[in-house]
């Protein structure tokens, strides 16, 4: 029974991170937007729906949508001034954005309780049934499928082909008469929306959130997932989430003292990331690697 609960917990987290990784892949893998601050949208979704539930008693389902929409809105706010920045500079701007958001989660104490975090976030109720354990896994699974199918369809549509054209050569896309800034903005907003949904799913599952869950290092974890699984590959993002989240679990069964697990986990996944970046920057299932133009 305990083992079953352990597996279910792991699968739920993998599911939530799959949504996060798929959504980041839309912006980074398919469109080539170097967004290092993706975790901020996840945090906005989590805080929005947690605060709505805790202070206003808003039901999970409305909070979930609100979390996604507010994250999307922040995606738009971030995109309007910064989307024209090139490459590394966009990476820096998104990094700064994520640090500012984390700083707000940490310091707007009257709203977020700062580092104390928000405990007691209610579990979702579905037709009188409180979702937890296996039923929560089903819920997360449904959202993974929705995200998976939506992003797959989107990237195979004419819209998605424009995104890839922008990634390969923005000037060509422009000269074909495409408003590339608009396309990039829409990609970032959709990406932020799904990250917000993932955040809400996380908050109502763990029932406790605090600012450290949304630190920039977690963002690197998600980037590692899509680099490992493969840039511009939707199944790759899921594979990446599996691999990155299973690494620390494997360590659990090795004779490593518990205080060292965090450090060993960090070293191991960073090592895998670096080796892949050197040997196979397109990842396991990816079709694309950032190369010098």
């Amino acid at each position: 029974m305990a083992f079953e609960a352990y597996i279910i917990n792991l699968l739920i987290l993998i599911g939530i991170f799959s949504i996060l990784a798929i959504s980041l892949n839309l912006a980074m893998g398919f469109t080539g937007l170097l967004n290092i601050g993706h975790i901020a949208f996840y945090g906005i979704g989590a805080y929005t729906s947690a605060l709505l539930a805790l202070s206003l008693g808003v039901p999970f389902w409305i909070g979930l949508v609100a979390g996604g929409l507010l994250a999307a809105f922040f995606g738009l706010i971030l995109a309007i001034p910064t989307i024209k920045l090139r490459g590394d500079y966009l990476a820096l701007a998104t990094l700064a954005f994520a640090i500012i958001m984390e700083s707000i989660f940490r310091n707007w104490i009257s709203l977020t309780r700062g580092p104390l975090g928000l405990p007691g976030i209610p579990k979702p109720v579905f037709f009188g049934l409180t979702l937890s354990g296996f039923s929560y896994l089903i819920l997360v699974f449904v959202f993974v499928i929705i995200t998976y199918l939506f992003i797959t369809r989107l990237t195979k549509s004419p819209f998605g082909r424009v995104l890839k054209a922008i990634r390969e050569d923005e000037l060509v896309a422009k000269s074909l008469g495409k408003n590339t800034l608009k396309f990039k903005t829409i990609a970032l907003v959709i990406s932020a929306f799904f990250a917000g949904i993932a955040g809400s799913l996380y908050a109502h599952y763990i029932t406790f959130i605090d600012p450290s869950t949304f630190s920039i290092l977690e963002s690197i974890l998600v980037i590692a997932m899509i680099i490992i699984g493969g840039l511009a590959s939707v199944p790759g993002a899921v594979v990446g989430a599996f691999i990155v989240l299973l690494i620390p679990e494997v360590l659990r069964f090795l004779p490593i003292p518990s205080y060292a697990i965090g450090a060993v986990r960090q070293i191991l996944f960073a090592l895998i990331l670096v080796i892949l970046l050197i040997k196979r920057p397109q990842g396991i299932l990816g079709e694309f690697a950032f190369k010098k133009k």
Binding site: G87, I220, G262, A263, I267, L277
Partner: peptide, 24 residues
């Protein structure tokens, strides 16, 4: 011929490895 962004990400990886070893 990896892009600047690959190098940037790799430098993040290096950062995590070195600080992870120090933590250990």
């Amino acid at each position: 011929k990896g892009s600047n962004f690959i190098l940037l990400l790799a430098s993040f990886g290096v950062f995590l490895i070195v600080t992870g070893i120090i933590l250990l």
